[in-house]
């Protein structure tokens, strides 16, 4: 892993998003390629800052269309954070998806999203609409 040129030698400030505390982090890319991270109150912040510089990732939460569900949309999420740069393409991919009710929380809706190795999973139950006479 290398630090991109933009960051090297530059200071970067950021807000940690891993918890509601929202620590103000500062990352200095040392000339030797090392990262100096300050401002965090826990280890997660430190890790976040490093990832944010090297490979920023986000959990994507959105919806997919449901057929025969009690509601027209099913809320879904990526099981883990995916590279930030893939958010838009992931949305486009999921927009074409239409799934069948019923669904249970945690069911895999789409495996291996854009070859990330990360699944998209249901974040709630969705009952099938009962057939009305």
């Amino acid at each position: 892993m290398t630090i991109d040129g933009k960051t090297k030698g530059n200071n970067r400030k950021m807000t940690c998003i891993t918890c509601p505390t929202g620590c103000q982090l500062e990352v200095r890319g040392g000339a030797d390629g090392e990262l100096e991270i300050t401002g965090f109150q826990c280890r997660r912040g430190e890790e976040y800052a490093r990832n944010e510089v090297l490979n920023p990732k986000r959990v994507l939460t959105t919806t997919v269309k449901v057929r025969n569900g009690v509601l027209p949309l099913l809320p879904v999420r990526t099981a883990k954070a995916i590279p930030k740069g893939l958010l838009e393409r992931s949305m486009d991919t999921l927009a074409d998806l239409e799934i069948q009710a019923p669904v249970r929380t945690g069911d895999v809706i789409l495996a291996n999203l854009l070859d990330t190795g990360i699944d998209v999973i249901a974040s709630r139950d969705m009952e099938k609409v009962s057939n009305v006479g």
Partner: peptide, 22 residues
């Protein structure tokens, strides 16, 4: 509230709204 960020204090996990409710 389908976004994540719920439950970090209580469950040490980042849940979505529906997941937290469940």
């Amino acid at each position: 509230c389908i976004h994540n960020g719920f439950g970090l204090h209580r469950f040490q996990e980042e849940l979505t709204g529906p997941e937290y409710a469940y």
